[in-house]
């Protein structure tokens, strides 16, 4: 599903040049659950953004679903992103002015689906996350764990093949965090590919494979044996 060859990402301001990723080579197959770990500033989020087609690499090749997407325009990347990739953020990133249902429905709106279809899919996603009873609430009225479940519902509502999670439990206490990890593991069991950035070894235990980054390099790649469910 994902092939990255010699990925390089350099951020430059007027005077300083910072290399966030340097010669990163990664391959992720469909149905995998991969965790990316490493200290702050090692390039985890940068890698996730490139994988999620939110950003272009400065150099190297990146293939997503068989397409070379290393140097696509914003518009082309947006087209490919739609319906294929779901995002989950540490700070949930729900739109405060929209209700739970409307937040979940939003990706379908941009896919141009009819109202009936949207209703059906959004309700199914909420049902799956056990959030139907909260469908008319606004994000601020929910607990952190609930907000993250809504965010997951939004990520999966369009049947995304890949879910990218950026420290999904970073803002949650351990109970709620566990809950969210279980949901992700379930999704993975049902066939969704998941790539997750995390600081937490506990969360990483849910993944099949852990990639360690340090100063923009891949240092180790471990296959986990018999990960927990």
């Amino acid at each position: 599903m994902i092939q990255a060859k010699n990925l390089k990402k350099v951020y430059s301001t007027e005077e300083v040049e910072t290399t966030a990723l340097n010669n990163v080579n990664i391959e992720i197959k469909e149905g995998e659950f991969v965790a990316i770990m490493g200290p702050s500033g090692c390039g985890k989020s940068t890698l996730l953004n490139i994988m999620g087609l939110l950003d272009n690499p400065s150099d190297g090749e990146y293939h997503f679903l068989g397409h070379d997407v290393s140097n696509r325009t914003e518009r082309e990347r947006a087209q490919l992103r739609k319906g294929n990739i779901g995002f989950i953020f540490q700070s949930f990133n729900l739109i405060d002015e929209l209700t739970v249902f409307e937040n979940v429905e939003l990706p379908l709106l941009y896919l141009g689906m009819s109202a009936d279809e949207r209703k059906e899919k959004a309700e199914a996603a909420l049902e799956r996350m056990s959030m139907m009873h909260r469908r008319n609430h606004f994000p601020q009225q929910l607990s952190g764990g609930q907000q993250q479940r809504v965010a997951i519902a939004r990520a999966v509502v369009a049947n995304a093949k890949l879910i990218l999670a950026d420290e999904p439990t970073g803002n949650l206490d351990s109970d709620h965090g566990n809950e969210v990890m279980k949901v992700l593991a379930e999704l993975n069991e049902q066939g969704t590919t998941i790539v997750m950035v995390t600081h937490s070894p506990h969360d990483a235990d849910f993944a099949m494979r852990v990639i360690h980054l340090f100063d923009g390099h891949v240092v180790t790649e471990n296959m986990q044996e018999g990960f927990h469910v």
């Binding site: 087209q79 992103r81 995002f87 739109i95 941009y110 896919l111």
Partner: peptide
């Protein structure tokens, strides 16, 4: 801005 960011990540294009 945050709203724009979210909308864009989940599929909004510029014209939307």
């Amino acid at each position: 801005a945050k709203e724009v960011g979210i909308r864009k990540t989940i599929g909004a294009e510029r014209h939307h």
